[in-house]
């Protein structure tokens, strides 16, 4: 019994943390535990969670990505520009995702094929792409056609009683869960992430998987940012920038629970962050407390997992040397 508790220490500690958070918020605000608020919380959750999901693939393969939020700005601005030109929503979204695929591919080739350090490549390419995103409107908002085009449905629409973002959340998590945890590809992702050389010697096409991971990451964060833009009701350059921190935090909280990057771990991480953000919003705590919350939760959860000595520490998975 004691051994079981020890083995699942992080998970139990995490469950305790969630319960405490829920109790505190529902006693502080009557509206917190209502169905309406929960749906709203889930809609909000989708944004962090989908972007973090993309990052999970990159982290699973043993790399860092500091560029996806910049790419998402470019992709969402491309979409907004197309909407402004009068394109219908679906083609605008799809064409908007193309540059994300392209930039993700460049990341993957630079890092996987040419073995350049991931931190530098992603920061460098990311900032260049972010600069490039200014060409659409010089940095100002794009309102044109937004309300008439129907793009707002990406956030406001419902499928049955489920909001569209939540539908995508379920869909993308379902697919990713199958891919990463039940398919041969998932095996290869993890093999590369834990020991790239051994993966190469096991006849796994390592470069292709690295490229795929960076493309997935760029794609998912870009799509998330499009939902966010739809929620804002205007093309907004800086919208994507706020994806970086919560995504990393979610992935790492997930790692601290399950000792490796997983789809369900990332979901729980994003979930914890989102209910806390939602709870604080309910209590009318200003936005700038959110970073504080994320920082503290991140530190706490990893310290908890650091105390749990029974399993392999996440360090071995992610301690990367950013040597040039």
């Amino acid at each position: 019994m004691i051994k079981r508790i020890k083995e699942n220490f992080s998970l139990i500690a995490f469950a305790g943390l969630i319960i405490i958070v829920l109790v505190v918020f529902s006693s502080a605000s009557e509206q917190f535990m209502t169905l309406g608020n929960m749906l709203k919380a889930f809609k909000h959750l989708s944004i962090t969670a989908i972007s973090a999901l993309g990052l999970t693939f990159v982290v699973a393969i043993g790399h860092n990505d500091m560029s996806f939020h910049y790419f998402s700005c470019f992709a969402a601005m491309t979409m907004s520009w197309l909407i402004g030109l009068g394109f219908p929503p679906v083609p605008s979204i799809l064409i908007g995702l193309l540059p994300a695929v392209f930039f993700g591919w460049i990341n993957g080739v630079a890092i996987g094929t040419f073995k350049l350090p991931d931190m530098i490549v992603t920061i460098g390419l990311g900032s260049a792409v972010y600069g490039l995103a200014y060409i659409y409107s010089g940095g100002s908002y794009i309102y044109k056609n937004f309300l008439q085009s129907g793009i707002l449905e990406l956030n406001n629409g419902k499928l049955g009683s489920l909001p569209v973002p939540v539908v995508f959340l379920i869909l993308l998590y379902g697919v990713s869960w199958i891919v990463l945890h039940h398919s041969v590809h998932g095996r290869r992702f993890y093999a590369i992430g834990s020991n790239k050389t051994a993966a190469l010697f096991s006849a796994i096409p390592v470069r292709k998987y690295i490229i795929a991971a960076f493309i997935i990451c760029a794609l998912l964060s870009s799509f998330t940012n499009m939902i966010q833009i739809a929620a804002q009701g205007k093309g907004y350059l800086k919208g994507g920038l706020m994806l970086l921190m919560p995504s990393w935090a979610a992935v790492f909280i997930g790692i601290s629970i399950f000792k490796k990057p997983t789809v369900y771990g990332t979901f729980l991480g994003a979930f914890l962050i989102s209910i806390m953000q939602n709870g604080f919003t309910m209590l009318s705590v200003p936005f700038y407390f959110m970073d504080f919350v994320i920082g503290i939760v991140l530190i706490l959860s990893i310290i908890i997992s650091g105390l749990d000595v029974t399993r392999i520490k996440p360090k071995s998975l992610l301690k990367k040397r950013s040597k040039v």
């Binding site: 993890y190 093999a191 834990s194 020991n195 050389t197 051994a198 993966a199 190469l200 010697f201 490796k260 392999i312 071995s316 998975l317």
Partner: peptide
């Protein structure tokens, strides 16, 4: 260790 096995799997 380096080339043969994925140790933490």
């Amino acid at each position: 260790r380096q080339e043969g096995q994925i140790g933490n799997e």
